[in-house]
């Protein structure tokens, strides 16, 4: 019954489905092929524990960038998580329908705004503001954290809200029937039940923060020195690649691919964490 062209189409479908695997493999191969030789030559320890980044003199210490990425991301989570989880609880539990109808499209729109636009806003408003209020140069961990916090809000709000809405109604009704107040129910029943979804949202937001490049470059100052306070400038792993890639050659270029490997491994670990988080209550 099946015609020849249907067989061909079915083959094509399979090939397309496998394309994603193929692309991931290609990416992994090309990043590692270009970055591994220099890591092997100088040793992994040189890269991840060295604090000296002078690629033209053969010093490839990535520790300042690893610390930079880590601190900026941590700051973004400290600011962004309470706000966005609060926002998600509000939208799922408290907001009147009309408010949700207004807030949701607004958040979706903001999720689509290009990251350079957020970076540009950080550059013209946030950096001068921090310079004037807290001193320093303004280009700092703090400004990077704030810009990233704004950027990860939509991700965490959307996914956590879905998770909270997915909590069975009976749980809530049971709790209310036992005499708990609405907030007690949210705190003791709803949020714990939606815990895995909220956790997934936070890890995804974290991945977005670590991986963000342009917005961060525009506000953190990009100095490859270990920071001493949150008002110090830093450079992130992503920034290290983006800033120097245009003129790097030879080992310098390979060292940037090595930076890519470090970033890639961090992101893969986060991705694995997401898949490990149980999808539903009780699983």
């Amino acid at each position: 019954m099946k015609k020849l062209h249907e067989n061909i189409i079915e083959k094509l479908l399979l090939v397309s489905a496998v394309a994603a695997i193929f692309v991931v493999a290609l990416i992994t191969y090309f990043i590692f092929a270009d970055g591994l030789p220099v890591i092997q030559k100088y040793g992994l320890a040189h890269f991840i524990t060295g604090i000296d980044w002078h690629p033209l003199e053969g010093h490839f210490g990535l520790l300042p960038m690893i610390v930079g990425s880590f601190l900026v991301t941590l700051g973004a989570l400290l600011i962004g998580v309470p706000l966005s989880v609060g926002c998600a609880i509000f939208l799922a539990e408290i907001a009147p329908k009309q408010v949700t109808g207004l807030v949701k499209p607004a958040i979706e729109l903001l999720a689509g705004i290009p990251s350079v636009v957020y970076g540009f806003y950080g550059l013209v408003i946030l950096v001068p503001f921090i310079r004037e209020v807290f001193g320093g140069r303004g280009f700092s961990i703090l400004s990077g954290s704030i810009v990233l916090a704004i950027m990860i809000l939509p991700t965490i709000v959307n996914i956590s809200e879905d998770a909270i809405r997915a909590v069975p109604k009976d749980y809530k009704e049971g709790s209310l029937a036992l005499g708990a107040t609405h907030w007690q129910t949210i705190k003791k029943v709803i949020v714990p039940s939606a815990r895995s979804g909220i956790l997934t949202a936070i890890v995804l937001g974290m991945g977005r923060a670590i991986g963000e490049t342009m917005a961060v470059i525009m506000v953190v100052g990009n100095v490859s020195v270990l920071p001493e306070s949150i008002l110090d400038p830093v450079r992130t792993l992503t920034g290290n690649i983006a800033i120097e890639m245009s003129y790097a050659a030879g080992e310098h270029s390979q060292a940037l691919f090595a930076t890519g490997i470090v970033l890639f491994v961090i992101i893969m670990i986060l991705n694995l964490l997401v898949t490990l988080v149980p999808k539903r209550v009780g699983e």
Partner: peptide, 24 residues
């Protein structure tokens, strides 16, 4: 495996895509 690859692809930072595009 396909789903894992698709999710991985969605999570890879754009700068890594940039490096890959440059090299490949």
């Amino acid at each position: 495996v396909i789903r894992f690859a698709t999710e991985t692809l969605a999570g890879i930072p754009s700068i890594i895509f940039g490096l890959f595009g440059f090299a490949f």
